[in-house]
Amino acid sequence: MEKEENIELAAEIMLEFAAQTGLSKENKTPRRYLWTDAFAVCNFLELHHHTQQEEWLVLARQLVDQVHHILGQHRPDAARSGWLSGLSDEEGGRHPTRGGLRIGKKMDERAPDEPMDERLEWERDGQYYHYLTKWMRALCRISRATGEAGYLRWGMELAQTAHRAFRFSAAPEGALELCWKMSSDLRRSLVPSVGQHDPLDGLVTCCELLCAARHFPDQELPDLQREIRELTEMCRNRDFSTSDTLGIGSILIDACRTGELIINDAFQNLALFQRMVHDALLSLEDCGGGFLDQQARYRLAFRELGLSIGLKGSARLARLFEEYPDVRGGELAAWLQPRLEAMLWFHKMAGRIERFWIEERRKGSEHWKSHGDINMVMLATSLAPGQFLKGS
């Protein structure tokens, strides 16, 4: 019964999102934002999976098309027009992710001669690597749902473009890293600092794309072996532990996806997987749950809902290894069992987070509306996370 109620509420939220952001209303100017839309595609696919109603798949397809034609092209107020890749209209339509995808911020990115303002930079456009990986996943999921290789090809082309543009050497002949933020045309760095989880997210996503390619043996799809090799090196000896709720959720989600890849023999680095699980559990234990007793004005819904989605991922990971206990000779499941049991102790936090923000949504509080679009889609994902968490 609870699952049905969650699906019904997720459907209500996603219909509201589609209308408010100009996806389902022709007379409304579309409002596209890459992170939000990546979650939304997965939500539409999950609702299609549960209801078998074609309207949800139609919305997923329409959203992919809108994102590519809006965020894959220069802003209307930019000096340049057309595809970010510089390809012709026709060729750009065939390869809409070759130039990456803009974040979708309201403010244009800063000019090359404009000094950095850390506060304003959060409001400015450009490209984020960890937003691009979310979109790669969305394309991977819709490819599996529709059986169409074209979506997967776009995701793999985006993986190659993002890796080529964001990777840099920290020093002459030094270790490779990923830049935090690039300009919309991917020609200059806007924030050169390094994202803690970006290489891990990129690695897991590239492995997932390659795994999905197995379903299209007759297609010539991009090879991501170089990207996987270099991202693996970036993850070497990296500490993934964090006190940020959204960051903890991210590690838990990556661990869930990686567990499924291991079961499908599509991820070989068991030591890295074990470090993900270890650092995620350590982060959960350090985080506790004191924030749950705070008032809404001191909290951010989408960050907490990211944790809630990750906790759902840890439960899925536990179920996967219950179903496949003999993977890698059974030693991995034996190592995982006590750690997953410890993680599941925190699972009740997910329900508390959802109930709190469902009530804030019902009240229409300013704390909910201030980040309305992203709050909506992440609440819907937490309520019905199947397609977002599922691997290839």
Rank of each mutant, 00 (worst) to 15 (best):
E5C: 03
E12W: 00
A18P: 08
Q20G: 14
G22I: 07
G22H: 07
T29A: 15
R31L: 14
R31H: 14
F39G: 04
V41P: 04
C42Q: 12
N43R: 04
F44I: 02
E46D: 14
T51L: 03
E55V: 12
W56Y: 07
W56V: 01
L57A: 10
L59I: 02
L59H: 08
D65Q: 15
D65P: 00
Q66A: 04
Q66N: 13
L71V: 05
G72S: 01
Q73H: 15
P76F: 09
D77N: 14
S81N: 08
L84K: 01
R94N: 08
G100W: 05
G100R: 04
G100K: 04
L101M: 10
K106M: 13
E109N: 06
E118C: 09
L120P: 00
E123F: 07
Y129H: 14
L132P: 02
T133V: 15
R144E: 10
T146A: 10
L152W: 01
L152D: 09
W154P: 02
W154R: 14
E157L: 04
A162C: 06
P172S: 07
E177P: 00
C179N: 11
R187W: 00
S189I: 05
L190R: 01
V191N: 13
S193E: 08
V194D: 09
D198I: 06
P199W: 07
L203P: 06
V204Q: 03
C207S: 12
L209M: 01
C211L: 02
R214K: 07
P217T: 03
D218S: 06
L221S: 09
Q225H: 14
I228S: 06
R229N: 07
T232L: 06
S250M: 14
I253T: 14
D254C: 15
I262Q: 13
I263Q: 12
N264R: 15
F267Y: 14
Q268G: 15
F273I: 11
A280C: 06
L282C: 13
S283P: 05
L284Y: 00
D286V: 13
G290R: 04
D293L: 05
A296N: 05
A296F: 05
R303M: 11
L305D: 02
I309E: 09
L311R: 00
K312W: 00
S314M: 12
S314F: 08
L317I: 11
F321P: 11
E322R: 13
P325W: 09
P325H: 11
E331I: 15
L332F: 13
Q337V: 05
P338V: 07
E341H: 13
M343P: 08
H347F: 12
E360P: 00
E360I: 06
G364P: 06
S365Y: 01
W368S: 06
H371I: 04
H371Y: 12
G372E: 15
I374D: 08
M376C: 12
M376L: 12
L379P: 02
L379I: 00
G386F: 08
